[in-house]
Write a protein that binds this DNA or RNA. Structure first.
Length: 947
RNA sequence: GCAUCAAUAGAUCAAAUUGGUAGAGCAAACGGUCGAUAACCGUUAGGCUUCAGGCUCAAAUCCUGAUUGAUGCACCA
């Protein structure tokens, strides 16, 4: 045995690890991403999980137009939680990201850019324009990919699906062919904004509002139906419906009058006429028109007017009265600046021209009225319009007013200033005009109709949250036929041909498949590069007239059709990687109307079933006060800023910590709390790693039966959290997983277990059972913690994983979640809950003693516990360890009637090595400043040094 | 305007399927420690559960209405 005297400080086993306290995420994250890329982590995971059951999250494609915002980041992070957690559950969980590349916002962007260079869209060939759109989408997509990768999201980033790729465009076209084949597609008319100067359809976004003066006219329509149907008192009277409009030129297209079923209407006798006007508006109309409105014959609900017929004021045509909730009382709308117009106008009976208004169109559609539009592309009345054929509509306005004044149908006319839509290029007033459009019918094919099937499928999908089912069902019930045509160029063309001779429109699934094959080779640009004859099979002839010459349809498909077809265009075109249907779609709540809806239709068209088994939706990111983030309010949080300042890991943890099913707040305070939590996770892991320095789990672990009870308690607690955490992942309730882990780290580990363990780890000889038992526990805890945190803290858990001794697996993301033991530990857990209850009381007493300056450090204390008999018996088993559990130097337990805790100054002297107080300090010759426990440890150390 | 969802300490979340007197850690304040140190431990103080009604012995929880917020749809003829 050596006579050398140890430097006591050096015999204490202090923690040591390369896992730094400071995360330095700004640098460490990119370094780790690089490492993952170099080792091919995503591919390795796929390899390891090969042959396992699949779990497919199908990515809803973000729009490839701009940089990502915080909402996009939240969406992708949540998806990554799903993919990583399912993979760690043992599933083969691939992630193929996608991008939505076609559509109007990109067209608009490109047009704007062209304009800046003094060029016009119409001056360049369509395919040049499409090429620029394609380039723009590519650029945006590349930027987004860079940002998504930076967030630590693993997936097939080198081969994402693009709705503008040749394969995808071909699949989109083919799917349209399937709709055609199944008889869902029809050609109809629908009103759209129409610029009569540019002679083009305009999208909502291309319309600007400006004040104009319009003729405001009140017009009388003779009730043709028997007035007695409304009320006996009206029998035989000359009853007239009064309507109001500011667009007299739409009157030739009037096919109906809409009333609100819930409003009151009055029948007012004026001279030899009885006028029908909404009760609430009678006074204002009478004032304007200057008649005496005191003679109300009867008052009745609008529903009484249902399906009665009126006579057009000058045409030999019936105008159908229809019930609609869109009918409002007067003009109570607010202007853009938020001020009420204060004007009263209207009669509660609304002139309805289905060819000239969206509302008119939908109500007309429900009542079987056509979208009648006797106005041509130049805004000129067609031949069929009596009296006004060949007139430009805005010029016809005063003439129509005069005409009605002459024939007595005009009740009143005035000038009226209001906001009216204008073309953003022409800056001239636009009109609403029905034009030929392509529709997908919701209700034909009977039992196999899209609506009927969709409603059935909705019940087979599992919705998170559960109210999603009702919301989706409502959407499907209420949605009109799907208008899939757009008068644009950046998209997938609708494959139809028009015979140049008889104008017959050819829409044929076989032709569509033929052209789709060409798209597959050349992209949809082929539609614009080739002549119709080069797209049709050789010698194709019109079936109506035998003519062989055709022109191409110019409309393209709605972008929702593009993305909606992803279930077939992606899930079924990636070999063994993916399959239809997907297990889950996870998107923002706006997608009930959008992608969930269009995908459902497409899934049904292709396979008669929903393309997803589960739907998870998340809310929107709002500011710290719950307000919507917007550029004008300046409350926008940029993901780049968060990443640069705090790291992607903080954003991931934020996504995990909040309740994403509702609107999610994001503010500096919230992020600062999340950062605190991050530090807690990190420091907890670091401390455990530090105490595992040099530990060889394979050789030095202690069998569970031989472990100290508190170490077994820690493992039993771990098992409980593991259950909770795995349940959370399984149910997409990441917050539950996060909370459980956070509570485990702060309370179970940091405040209790690790604090108590400190003495044992530092003081006992490295090879002692006491220390090895603790390390065995710590090893299992750290290993499990890394795995359980991995989906959320993708970077940090992997970093900790690398620092775990004896590591065989190259990344935590290749590992699986720890198994849950079914062993019943409830008694063990309950015993320790009781101990911690007593400990909490002791800690309070210690704090009081500290306040009175009896002690500073708790090791300066002796605790004298008075407890009841039962507790005395209970504590008997723990008597020797109580001082370590309480982190004091001495504990006495006395039986008493009630609980009492007395704190005294500990007996003896402070041991220089372990800082505990002991009366035996000074007894030992070689180390006179040390206690009996340290002497033992030191002799062990001496033995080891000699060997 | 219509539909859906929500509202609990400063912030983030709990409070069971079936109503039973609201909890946690964090932050704050104060203290300890100086062997996890840009760490660690403790103590204390924070809530008319958005508001107003109702059912009930009993309501954060159920019902009605309002307010606020978010999203979707529609609308300004």
């Amino acid at each position: 045995m050596s006579n050398e005297v140890f430097d006591l400080k050096k015999t204490v086993n202090l923690p040591k690890t390369d896992f730094a306290q400071k995360a330095n995420l700004g640098q460490s994250e990119p370094a780790r991403l690089k490492k993952w890329e170099e080792m091919g982590l995503y591919e390795k995971i796929a390899e390891v999980r090969k042959g396992r059951e699949k779990f497919i999250l199908h990515d809803g494609p973000p729009y490839a137009n701009a940089d990502i915002h915080i909402g996009t980041a939240l969406n992708k992070i949540l998806k990554d939680f799903v993919v990583k957690s399912r993979s760690m559950m043992g599933y083969d969980a691939p992630y193929v990201p996608g991008y939505d590349c076609h559509g109007l916002p990109i067209e608009n962007y490109v047009e704007r850019k062209l304009k800046e260079k003094g060029k016009n869209k119409d001056d360049i060939p369509t395919n040049t324009f499409r090429r620029i759109c394609r380039e723009h989408a590519s650029t945006a997509m590349n930027n987004q990919t860079r940002d998504f990768k930076r967030l630590g999201i693993l997936g097939e980033w080198e081969t994402p699906y693009l709705t503008m790729s040749n394969e995808y465009e071909a699949e989109t076209a083919r799917l349209f062919g399937i709709y055609v084949e199944r008889g869902f597609v029809y050609r109809g008319a629908r009103p759209v904004y129409w610029d009569v100067y540019d002679q083009t359809a305009l999208a909502e976004a291309e319309v600007e509002y400006a004040d104009v003066v319009s003729p405001s006219v009140y017009v009388k329509f003779l009730l043709k139906s028997d007035p007695a149907l409304i009320d006996e008192k009206l029998a035989g009277k000359n009853v007239k419906c009064v309507i109001w409009t500011t667009t007299p030129w739409t009157l030739p297209a009037n096919l109906g009058i809409s009333v609100n079923p819930r409003f009151d209407y009055s029948a007012i006798e004026v001279g030899d006429e009885v006028l029908l006007i909404a009760t609430e508006l009678v006074v204002s109309v009478a004032e304007k028109a200057g008649f005496d409105a005191t003679k109300e014959i009867v008052r009745f609900k609008g529903e009484k007017l249902d399906k009665l017929e009126a006579q057009h004021p000058w045409l030999d045509r019936v105008s159908l009265i229809m019930l609609g909730d869109h009918v409002t009382l007067g003009d109570d709308s607010a202007d853009d600046d938020g001020k009420k117009s204060g004007k009263t106008a209207g009669t509660g009976l609304v002139h309805t021209a289905p060819g000239h208004g969206t509302d008119d169109f939908y109500i007309g559609q429900r009542h079987g009225l056509p979208a009648y539009c006797p106005v041509n592309a130049k805004g000129v009345f067609t031949e069929e319009v009596e009296h006004f054929a060949g007139e430009f509509v805005f010029k016809a306005n005063p003439k129509i007013v005069e005409f009605m004044r002459d024939n007595g149908s005009l009740l009143f006319h005035e000038d009226y200033t209001h906001r009216y839509p204008h073309g953003w290029r022409s800056h001239k007033p636009v009109i609403y005009r029905a034009t030929p459009q392509w529709f997908i019918a919701m209700d034909n094919q009977g039992d196999k109709s899209l609506r009927a099937q969709a409603l059935r499928e909705v019940e087979n999908v599992k919705w998170h949250p559960a109210w999603g089912e009702g919301r989706m069902a409502n959407m499907i019930k209420g949605r009109p036929d799907w208008c899939v045509s757009r008068q644009r160029v950046w998209g997938v063309p609708i494959i139809a041909f028009h015979c140049t001779s008889c104008e017959h429109c050819v829409i044929d699934a076989k032709l569509i498949y033929h052209v789709a094959d060409i798209f597959a080779a050349e992209t949809a640009d082929a539609w614009y590069n080739r002549e119709a004859s080069e797209l049709l099979p050789d010698g194709y002839k019109c079936q109506e007239c035998g003519n062989g010459e055709f022109t191409k349809e110019t409309d393209i498909l709605d972008v929702w059709f593009d993305s909606g077809s992803s279930s077939v265009a992606v899930l079924e075109t990636r070999g063994d990687t993916l399959h239809f249907p997907a297990d889950v779609y996870l998107e923002g709540g706006d997608q009930y109307r959008g992608w969930f809806n269009s995908s459902l239709m497409c899934g049904i068209a292709a396979h008669d079933r929903a393309p997803y088994k589960q739907i998870v939706t998340h809310g929107w990111v709002v500011d710290g006060e719950g307000k919507k983030q917007s550029k004008s309010l300046g409350n926008v949080t940029s993901p780049h800023e968060i990443i640069d300042r705090s790291g992607a890991e903080i954003m991931r943890l934020w996504a995990a910590a909040v309740d994403y099913t509702e609107d999610v707040r994001c503010s500096d305070e919230i992020l600062s709390r999340v950062t605190d939590a991050y530090r807690k996770f990190r420091n907890t892991a670091r401390y455990m790693l530090g105490n595992l320095d040099g530990f060889d789990p394979a050789a030095q672990s202690v069998a569970e039966a031989e472990m100290l009870e508190i170490d077994r308690w820690a493992l039993a607690s771990l098992n409980e959290v593991t259950k909770t955490v795995l349940d959370g992942y399984k149910n997409f309730d990441f917050q539950a997983s996060y909370s459980a882990l956070y509570h485990f780290c702060t309370v179970t580990l940091s405040a209790r277990y690790l604090d108590i363990l400190k003495d044992r780890l530092y003081i006992y000889a490295p090879t002692s059972l006491e220390r090895r038992s603790a390390q065995t526990g710590l090893y299992k805890l750290t290993d499990s913690l890394c795995r359980l945190l991995a989906p959320m803290l993708a970077f940090t858990s992997d970093e900790a994983w690398e620092n775990l001794p004896g590591q065989q697996v190259a990344s935590v993301h290749l590992a699986e979640f720890p198994a849950v033991s079914e062993a019943d530990n409830s008694e063990l857990l309950a015993r320790w809950e009781r101990i911690y209850g007593i400990r909490d009381e002791v800690l309070k007493a210690l704090e009081a003693a500290r306040g009175e300056k009896v002690i500073g450090s708790s090791l300066e204390a002796k605790v004298i516990l008075s407890v009841d008999k039962d507790t005395t018996m209970f504590l008997l088993d723990y008597y020797p360890q109580l001082r370590y559990i309480f982190i004091v130097s001495q504990v006495e337990v006395h039986e008493a009637d009630s609980l009492g805790i007395k704190i005294e100054k500990a007996d003896g002297e402070k041991c220089e090595r372990c800082w505990n107080y002991s009366v035996r300090v000074g007894e030992f010759e070689k180390y006179p400043t040390v206690c009996e426990r340290c002497i033992e440890a030191l002799s062990e150390l001496e033995k080891a040094a000699a060997a």
